[in-house]
Design a protein around this nucleic acid. Structure first.
Lengths: 205, 205, 205, 205
DNA sequence: GATGAATGAGGCTTCATTCAT
DNA sequence: CATGAATGAAGCCTCATTCAT
């Protein structure tokens, strides 16, 4: 009678869940949010299709979970940086922010691959747009603080925050997506130079 | 109540085709490439589903056609700018390039909404990646020419091209996608300032 | 205003109709009844799609027309042969029947290609089945007449008619469908030999 | 009244697969290869439409599977017969071959109904044509062996194989398709008589 | 917990037929 | 008479989700 269903490994729920998330990130990065199927994910995770629904109530919920985790991480990271505003040397802060942002991106390449790309698609506009705006707000506030302190000088702090953010983010994403072996240090050095030039007060000319 | 069968209207093929392209761009921008259905497009275009296939052999082919048209336009636009390199005042050229790029983006908001967003997704990576690289190459070449002429000074011209490109592109896209009423002039002024600061030789300090 | 719709040739209705029938036979033979589209037919016939419906009220009707014409021809051909029964030498009649049948098939290869093949499919079962039975009946009657006259001798005249009919028909069809250059004389000689052996009285042993 | 959602029944894959094949053969026989829809098949099999694709990747693949199975069976059957060539009494062999062929056809009436009919249509020409030719080759070889042994005598062994094959096959198919109650023994007796007469050496006359 | 067979809504595409020009 | 753009029903196939084991 016994059909000998071999492999029927039971794992701790959080492990299983982690497996599935890892697999999902993999597959999403590889095929895109829409082309990735639940079957793809479970295959990569090495579980049966039904198992997916033991951990996530739908594909959409998994996405939301992933997105939220990523957004939280990003905001937390930004908050950590922001806390240092005013407490230390402005240019050191700029360097630290730039470097830390790039490293944050590199540490989260998986999520970046997924959300950076389709982060602006209609479905996720709302979700990520808000976070994006918060980030921009924090950076803009930092710039303004630096201006108030006489360290920086830009005509339009908010817009500058947006430009710097997209410069670094966009380049990072391009590097992650296309460069097989991207040069982290080159990226960092370039971004620092960029930020310095942009934020520096105009020479007395 | 019944708004059925509003009598069949025949149009010249190029008009119908244009209708469909307009509708497609609309719908794609609205729902995203994958969530947009052929039925959505034909509904917006005011034709029957079968009519779509009189003009495009598949949803995929329409996408390709749209993408190619957009890429061609963008490359042509860049080529036009590039032709002016070396023939005129460098800073005037920078301003013109920045302004023209933003205006190009605004004129093509529809395509930007569609391709800017999902332009880096796995399915279109190949297609748009190549064009992106060409654009970057042209901008980098322009920067190098300016450096050779002693007008600009940057440590890493290629990377600078990438950063500037993404700064302007990203900000433009964000503006197009989120700002109900985006301020073109503010965007242009900010981008000019950005480019000037980034490309200007360091002051003798 | 005038769009200069060039080619708008008007032909005599019967010519047009003949063109369409020729084209249809071609296309049906080439792609099969179901895979052949009305568009295929009109393209081959060199007319617009709408024109088809000026001459046939539907694809089905065209098929019916074709089928009927073919069946009529076949029955008439058989009737002609049958009229000679009893009026002449039995073996000469056999030879003439065999030869004439093969030649009839070769002259109608187009129809054979179409109807021989799908003639037994559910849709046409009724239509061609009846004709087939009539033909068999006539051949069987001929054989019985020959037996009554002492010329032939078979155990089961009806079944023999069926066997002979399929032998010749099947081989002919196979030749038409697969043999690039089928040897009509070889086919005829073989069929005559076959018929003679089958109908000849058993030797006194 | 409502016969909806009769609770989902899970079966062993091979059973389900067999159900679907049975249903497919039924439906194909009933409506023809092209007019049969996947929905027809699943309705007869008593499953949802999607279930079909759990077992066959497309309608076309199912057809291929069915066809291959049938061709294999037929070739194997012929091979079995052919092995006996030369090892036993020639006329006994003829009788056995004829009888076995008819019985094979009757056992496979389902497939015959489907493939016999549309076996020569353009789409399957290639697939079945090759097998047909192989079969003919084997029968021709058998006849030639019998001639070499002095048992048979025909002018054109290859052509004779073709004629005999089509005589029996065609009659069998006609019987299967049209005769509600076909008389197997009559068919066998007639075919034996036919084969004997055709293969027998001419009387010294 | 885990499995994977089963489901069915919904998307893409074809093509016989219609109809305004 | 002739055209060919337009229609929409109908077929194939995918995949998120459910459920019996």
């Amino acid at each position: 009678m016994a059909l000998h269903k071999l492999k029927r490994i039971t794992k701790r729920p959080d492990e299983r869940r982690a497996d599935l998330i890892r697999a999902a990130l993999d597959v999403f990065a590889d095929k895109g949010l829409d082309d990735a199927t639940v079957a793809d994910i479970t295959r990569v995770a090495g579980v049966a299709k039904g198992t997916f629904y033991l951990y996530f109530s739908s594909k959409e919920h998994l996405l939301t979970a992933l997105r939220e985790r990523f957004v939280e991480d990003a905001l937390e990271h930004a908050a950590t940086l922001f806390e240092r505003v005013g407490k230390e040397d402005w240019w050191g802060l700029v360097d630290a922010t730039v470097e830390s942002s790039i490293d944050f991106g590199l540490q989260h390449r998986d999520s970046i691959r997924v959300f950076g790309r389709e982060g602006l698609s209609p479905k996720t506009k709302e979700a990520l747009g808000v976070a994006e705006r918060k980030l921009n707000g924090m950076f803009a506030a930092g710039i303004q603080a630096g201006m108030a302190a006489g360290a920086f000088q830009v005509a339009d702090p908010e817009l500058t925050a947006v430009y710097l953010h997209h410069a670094i983010d966009g380049a990072l994403m391009e590097a992650i997506l296309f460069d097989e072996d991207l040069d982290r240090d080159r990226l960092v050095a370039g971004a620092k130079e960029l930020a310095h030039k942009v934020l520096a007060p105009a020479p007395p000319s």
